[in-house]
Design a protein around this nucleic acid. Structure first.
Lengths: 132, 132
DNA sequence: CAGAATCCGAAGAGATACTG
DNA sequence: CAGTATCTCTTCGGATTCTG
């Protein structure tokens, strides 16, 4: 049991827990963090509150719809807070919550891994594709 | 410039780099790691080499097709190695590569974050859904 | 300016059946 | 036992249009 505590979090805990073990939780988090835009948005908000159009310019490539949609999800999960000012024209500012900021720490570990090893991955892909 | 080096990796580097900045790399890694099964497979392989059917039993919920498909991608990216023994019946063993094992370290940071905060996320979701 | 709503194509993912 | 192929369903994500 003490042999591999590291991977234990991801493993099935037995036939009786089929459907909702510890892996559901991490998958839940990853499906939020791992989608196409969430991480970019939270990353951009690390610099401080930003309004809708600024975010859209900042992220470069995101569509209007996806920015709205992803911000909704992030707000729902408590990673981003939304403040709307009842003016004309309307102004809305988004900000990373405390939770959103703590999330960024472990994510940075992954980011630096990606920076370190994505060359290896690309090389491995090419080598793989050359076979056959 | 030195104000927020943390988020800089994820940010757009300017209008001229539209399409392929540093965020492409992390997104590439995340789309591999963040899919439904890759992480579970790599996690299960932390315990040592396993053959196809063992993996399928170990992961519980994965379909035959998805296990094959995900293993292919992991092998292509150099995270998992495949060894086939030309016997009857055939035997194939999968093993995490060195790269696959280094990946698991930063991922564990995310896993523990998920363990720590997924209650907050669930609570935030309920609170959000109660409004309206 | 911010966002909701709709339509549509592409990719993800399961079920099943077939081969060596 | 391991892997491929096909079929189908759902989800993701972009484009567009419309409102306060």
């Amino acid at each position: 049991m003490a042999a591999s505590p590291a991977s234990a979090v991801l493993e099935d805990k037995g036939p009786c827990s089929a459907g909702h073990d510890g892996s559901d939780m991490i998958r839940d988090v990853l499906s939020r963090v791992g989608d196409k835009w969430s991480l970019l948005i939270v990353g951009s908000l690390q610099d401080g509150p930003q309004r809708f159009t600024v975010l859209q310019r900042n992220i470069a490539g995101i569509s209007h719809r996806m920015l709205t949609h992803t911000l909704r999800n992030l707000e729902r999960d408590g990673l981003v807070s939304r403040t709307s000012y009842p003016e004309i024209p309307p102004r809305v500012e988004y900000e990373a919550t405390e939770l959103g900021r703590t999330l960024f720490e472990p994510v940075l570990g992954l980011v630096s891994w990606a920076a370190d090893h994505h060359d290896d991955i690309l090389a491995s892909r090419e080598a793989y594709d050359d076979r056959d």
